[in-house]
Amino acid sequence: MATEAAPAPQPTQGEETPLLHRFLEGVGGPFTFVGREIFELIRVFALTFFYLFYRPIRWREVVRQCYEMGYRSMFFIAVVMGFLGMIMVMQTGLQAQKMLGDLSMIGALFLQLLFRELGPTITAAMIAVRVGTGLAAEIGSMVVTEQVDALRMNDAEPVQYLIVPRVIACLFMTIVLTCIAMVISFASAMAGAYLMFDLNPRTFYNTDLLIWGDFITFAMKSLAYGIVIPVIGCHAGLAAFGGSEGVGMATTRAVVNASLGITFVDFALSAFGFVFIY
């Protein structure tokens, strides 16, 4: 069967829907809605994987997307992660001072937390905001201006032509950006510790608490986020309909779903890491 966007719900036979139907619809509505969303996402995800391995990849497009994503998000992520580093140091430093009187381990603790949680997750949240909405906006505009239909008419299946390159690019850039972000965050935290608590940077730079598990967690999370964000963003874009209103809805949907997706993945992988690694 030819797969196309926006399947229409099947109508019931008669003109009047009985009260029971309507009640069930009202109660079950949100669930079926969420269920359908997730099902659609899985479908797009599966299609993306299929095209990833069974069709030629437009590498030039991948490179172009990498540049776009990196260039557009780098400054923004740098600012956010810089501030985050300083905030973390400020809060933990103050509390450590109050409770323990000893600040020597802040650096080590921060580094560990950076790898396990702050680095991948916050960077991913920012990428979801910048790139996720960007993808939804771009692809959504293409849908409402019928460019996606034109692609279909020319044997360029949107998932393969548009989504696959973007997913590959985002996966790669998420990892790259997360690494850079972590460096920036750590540097700003180190500076903050020095400026606020007179903490020797060399004391701050303490890798004692890092274990291999932390690296694995970091890698797993970055990879997962790098796939989840573009798939959700592109899916929201492809599902757009109805002019400018549709594009607005698509971008909103992208950012919300991507943030939720990140939260769920974070929870799942954190729990996984907790149980199996630590």
């Binding site: 069967m1 030819a2 797969t3 293409m142 201006t145 019928e146 460019q147 239909d149 034109a150 692609l151 279909r152 008419m153 020319n154 044997d155 299946e157």
Partner: peptide, 25 residues
């Protein structure tokens, strides 16, 4: 009633001029 591959072949024989141009920007 045909598969996507067969549909592609059919589409190769159709030209479409879209209402809103649908030019790839």
């Amino acid at each position: 009633r045909i598969s996507p591959v067969e549909l592609s072949d059919v589409r190769k024989r159709i030209g479409m001029l879209f209402q809103n141009y649908a030019l790839f920007d």
